[in-house]
Amino acid sequence: MNMNKLIIVMLSAVLLLAACGKAESRQHDGQQATPTGSHADDSQKAEGGHDMEHGEHKESGIGEQSANIEVDWRFSPEQPQASTNAVVSLKVMDGQGKPIQSFDLNHEKKMHLIMVSKDLSYFDHIHPEYKGDGQFEVETSFPAGGDYKLVADFIPTGQSAATITTWVKVQGKAFPQAAITPDSKLEKTVDGYTAVLSADSLKAGSESMLTFRISDAASAKPVDDLEPYLGAVGHVVIMSEDTEQYLHVHPMNESSTGPAAQFMTTFPKAGVYKIWGQFQHQGKVFVVPFVVKVS
């Protein structure tokens, strides 16, 4: 009888140990699942902020850049001079300071570099050459002394689009600061072309369809044979008066040839914005600027 009791006690102990082992295993799996889920949420937030798609339209903007990307900006000479060539160098690194090695082509280029003067009277869109090991370089010049904002737009392979900015002070005589005043009429003639801009909404937080209609300034004939510029019928860059809000918008129908080119965007907040539409015809790129007020 004592032997039977001893056997029962031993069997109970074995069963209890097995049950404890299973409970400990379930707790361990649960602890691993919690941080993994947290990382997944962070990744979703990062990716969701960078590219917004509407059909074939893609858009990127300041304030949506990845926290895991850094850019080391260098200028040669260190203080650029007005109307003199200078080299702009950018080294793109991850959050640990290691060079990012691979970048996706985005409209035929690995990097788009937008340069604007503080009063938005000057605009340029250039493309630094990738030298490898995270290094980009481009030679350019600034038309006058003063402060310029530079915006680097690129997509590290396997990541979302990144938008990184810096300011540079250029030495030399400065042009008088131009007032950024909304246009009373959204029609401009530039380089022999007339562009009429219409927007179905100029309200902050609402989607707005921007439609450019291009015609020959001399004959008023619609231009229906626009050529691809960087793989699309055109590009639109938008910046707020204070330069804090930036949007780079691609067309809804990239294969359109005009005379209409449509771009969908959302103005992030109320205020005055400058819009630059870039198009190409007969081998020549022309830029049409507009200033609008968003309510």
Results as ranks from 00 to 15, higher is better:
S121Y: 08
G132T: 05
H107V: 00
Y273N: 03
K149W: 01
V285T: 11
M93I: 04
T211S: 06
G134K: 07
V138C: 06
T36V: 11
P128D: 05
A40R: 13
V249M: 10
K185I: 09
A161F: 09
F267A: 08
H125G: 08
T265N: 14
M93H: 03
P289V: 02
D119C: 12
G132C: 05
M93Y: 00
K110T: 08
T163A: 10
G30F: 15
H39R: 14
H50R: 15
V196T: 15
D147S: 12
Y193E: 01
S43A: 12
Q65A: 11
A40S: 13
R26H: 13
K91L: 11
S83H: 09
A270W: 00
V92E: 05
G231T: 08
A161S: 14
P228M: 06
G277Y: 02
G145P: 09
F267W: 04
G132M: 10
V138R: 00
N4S: 11
R26E: 14
M115A: 13
A161Y: 01
V88G: 04
S89K: 12
N68M: 11
P289M: 03
G271E: 07
T257I: 09
A218Y: 00
I180W: 03
D51W: 11
V92T: 07
D42Q: 02
A260V: 10
V288G: 01
T189M: 05
H235L: 15
V236G: 09
S117G: 03
K131L: 13
A232K: 05
T243K: 06
A174G: 05
K188Y: 02
L15D: 03
S256E: 09
N85G: 05
T163N: 04
G37Y: 07
D124L: 06
K91F: 01
K98R: 13
Y273A: 01
C20T: 06
A18G: 05
K149T: 03
K185L: 12
M115K: 04
E64W: 09
P77I: 05
R213S: 05
M264Q: 15
W73L: 07
D183R: 09
A40K: 10
M3D: 14
M111C: 06
